[in-house]
């Protein structure tokens, strides 16, 4: 039985230590906001923060995060129903289409803005390698710039 620090809470996860964090979050802890898209760290839909670093959770075994590392998922961003300024910028800009990749996009953008509060387009290109098949890239870029100004 592993104990994980997820969104500020200590949660017990009964799963094989080799299980990817993505599936522990989704199936053991019921946190389905983190999405499965490829399972090989290509698409970014499963992006979470581990000690503040945007990380593709499909490639992180449970055993490597069960020692008090701070995990934040999409469910852990808004506090008491109040969206973060990044989520708010996403809302104001009507950013998602199907929305499936957007959890990962928002987690990646949140880490980017924490590191670089005023990112350039080149910074965005380098940090935002998540795949969106609906093609919301234009709106994502605009929302990141808007959040930086907010």
């Amino acid at each position: 039985m592993a104990v994980l620090n997820v969104n500020g809470k200590s949660l017990q996860a009964n799963a094989d230590p080799r299980t990817p964090l993505l599936w522990v979050l989704r199936e053991t802890l019921g946190l389905t906001g983190t999405k499965y898209g490829c399972g090989i760290a290509q698409c970014g839909a499963c992006t979470v923060h581990i000690d503040g670093v945007a990380t593709r959770s499909c490639q992180v075994p449970l055993s490597s995060v069960s020692s008090g590392k701070k995990i934040v998922t999409i469910e852990g961003l808004a506090q008491d129903g109040k969206l973060t300024k990044i989520q708010q910028a996403w809302l104001d800009n009507d950013t998602p289409q199907c929305g499936y990749c957007q959890s990962g996009m928002i987690m990646a953008a949140t880490a980017l803005l924490a590191a670089k509060p005023n990112p350039t387009d080149a910074d965005i290109d380098a940090a935002m390698t998540n795949i969106c098949r609906c093609g919301t890239y234009k709106q994502v870029r605009e929302a990141i710039h808007a959040a930086a100004k907010a």
Partner: peptide
Amino acid sequence: RLDTRDKLTGAMIYGIDYK
């Protein structure tokens, strides 16, 4: 759009999320 907010918080339920 009318369906945006839940897509920003992980609350939207896609088929894969159904329990």
